[in-house]
Computed example of a mutant assay.
Amino acid sequence: MIFYGGKPAGTQHRNHCPNCLTSLHLDNEPGDRAADCGGQMEPVAVWVRKGGEWAIIHRCRLCGKLTSNRIAA
């Protein structure tokens, strides 16, 4: 587990596989579940947001959309 400032980094909610980090293209905007694509979102990068929170950059294998998703602790 990754820690930042004595606390586990990331969120308790996960929208990606804990093993391969793959997700599904379900949202046009975070949480709206309005995407018609449904493709697999493959992890292509990791970055640290301001404040130390880690995030995964996903790219959809079908339409190519890039998104940033918080990493679960």
Rank of each mutant, 00 (worst) to 15 (best):
D32N: 11
P18W: 03
F3S: 04
R61H: 04
R61S: 14
R33I: 02
W54L: 14
N69M: 10
N15H: 12
G10D: 00
A35T: 02
A55D: 09
R59I: 02
I71G: 09
T11Q: 06
R14F: 00
R33H: 07
M41V: 08
T67W: 01
V46E: 10
K7V: 07
L24A: 13
N15K: 03
I2L: 11
H25S: 05
M41D: 03
R49D: 11
L21K: 14
C20H: 06
D27A: 12
A55W: 01
Y4E: 04
D32E: 05
D27R: 06
R14P: 00
P8C: 02
A72R: 04
H16T: 08
L21E: 05
P30C: 13
V48S: 13
R70V: 12
L24F: 05
D27F: 09
R33N: 05
G52N: 09
I57K: 15
K50C: 03
P43Q: 09
D27W: 08
A9K: 06
G6H: 07
R59C: 04
G38R: 14
I71S: 08
R49H: 08
I71K: 06
T67K: 12
C60R: 13
N19R: 12
E42S: 10
I2D: 11
I2C: 03
E29Q: 14
A35R: 08
V48R: 15
K65I: 15
C37P: 02
I56K: 01
R59P: 01
R14H: 01
C17K: 06
A55C: 15
G5K: 15
E42L: 12
R59Y: 01
P30G: 12
P18I: 08
L62A: 15
C60M: 06
Q40A: 10
W47H: 14
L66E: 14
A72K: 10
R49K: 15
M41F: 13
D27Y: 09
H25I: 01
V44Q: 03
R61I: 03
H16S: 15
L24D: 05
G38V: 05
A73K: 00
E29W: 11
G39W: 05
I71H: 05
A55T: 01
L26K: 11
A45T: 00
F3C: 03
V48K: 13
G38Q: 13
L62C: 07
M1P: 03
H58R: 07
